[in-house]
Write a protein that binds this DNA or RNA. Structure first.
Lengths: 229, 229
DNA sequence: AACCGTTCGGGTACGGTGTTCCCAGAGCGG
DNA sequence: CCGCTCTGGGAACACCGTACCCGAACGGTT
């Protein structure tokens, strides 16, 4: 009979205990690096070196796991300090930070438009944004709509921005290969001559990068909001 | 030996021939009615009364099927007639029509933010929208950005609008059940008193319906765009 | 009329998925 | 020492997308 070993020196294979937090972090790592389609329970378990079904001791199901991931991302940056009263500038900064988060976690934009986010970190952030919007108008209803519209714009903008990158990633093409294959198709359309304004855009117009387009829309939107109030 | 039958009277079980178009239509029917998650090759085949793998004679794979579905939806409404020169009003109408399409096909918003849409119907619609934007500015680059920003806003707006409905649908709750369960949670958060602005929104602010919020943002955005030009 | 190449429909099977059910073992209070 | 609760994990189920193959039927040529 082997001598009893002290509990805390028992060999647990060097692995820290399985917790909700570790599962969420591992899942986020996978989704960030390999895309949301590569996120599976088996994959997460492999990442953590555990059995697949052990995850279900800490997580209700995959859907809830994703919800936890979403909220965790909303909590990863500290809330900005209270500003000086320039609500347009502050809202712009909030929008930019939100955009950075969405770009850092390419799966987020899609998930955020699948279920309403209601986690604690989401609420905390929403509270902060509302406090800035309150500087713009005393009307609580309007302040709420301002926040909604802003979030809406950022979400839509980043979604579009990510669509291209995602298409490239899943087809496994390099940047150049993809540009070429699309370019060939677009050239055909242009040559057909049936879409004069589309042609004008392809030939005549520059194609500003994603950030420029984002800032253009953001600026317009904030300008429009100050008009409307 | 049976007598040879004329080709065109042969019994094909009364089923029309399998074509790409019929497959796309069946898939769209399923996705509209049961959600994008219920769309599977086997389900489509069952809807058409054929074998699952027969679909692959006409369709490269599921991804391409969805791309065809997206383009088909963009083609289902006729393009609006050329208008009278009021570009703000025309762009607003285009945005409203786009919103209606996205709402009629709840899977669309999500897919549109997964791959850049490049089908013929998408291009035709884009050409038309660009022609309206050209009335606002002679600068082709700016016109392109206007169209992008507008589409971006509509996409983001509808995504948010659908998220709630989708969450309700997949949890199988009725409208009331869902409102109650969320309400209970929100009440807890409010009671904690930690988020004063969030509370103000919940208690003090009305919650305008989705269309009102959409129109508010659309109006602001168009106002901002005329400022900027 | 006989052959032949091509196309279409579809059955089988493979490797994946989320999740449920059950069991083994460990820690702990009595 | 007995039982109770909690954690980890294996087996199995019902799906999924789709590659591979085969039979049947068509159009065109000999």
């Amino acid at each position: 009979m082997p001598p009893p070993t002290l509990v805390w020196m028992r060999d647990r294979g060097g692995r820290p205990a399985l917790t909700e937090e570790r599962i969420v972090r591992a899942a986020t790592r996978i989704a960030d690096a390999e895309g949301i389609d590569a996120l599976s329970m088996r994959r997460v378990a492999a990442e953590l070196g555990t059995g697949t079904t052990s995850l279900y001791r800490h997580i209700v199901g995959k859907d809830e796991l994703i919800e936890l991931m979403v909220d965790a991302v909303y909590g990863e940056d500290p809330l900005p300090e209270p500003g000086d009263g320039d609500w347009r500038g502050e809202l712009a900064d909030i929008a930019r930070a939100f955009r950075r988060s969405l770009l850092a976690h390419p799966w987020l934009a899609q998930q955020a438009s699948r279920r309403p986010a209601l986690g604690p970190n989401v609420i905390a952030r929403s509270d902060h944004t509302l406090s800035v919007a309150a500087k713009a108008t005393p009307d609580a209803t309007k302040a709420g709509m301002i926040v909604d519209v802003l979030n809406t714009y950022v979400l839509g903008s980043v979604s579009g921005e990510l669509a291209e990158a995602e298409a490239r990633r899943t087809t496994g093409m390099t940047e150049d290969q993809w540009r070429n294959s699309v370019g060939e198709y677009v050239a055909q359309v242009v040559e057909s001559g049936r879409y004069p304004h589309f042609n004008r855009r392809v030939i005549e117009a520059g194609d500003p990068d994603a950030e420029t387009r984002f800032e253009f829309g953001l600026f317009s939107l904030l300008a429009g909001l100050s008009d409307v109030l």
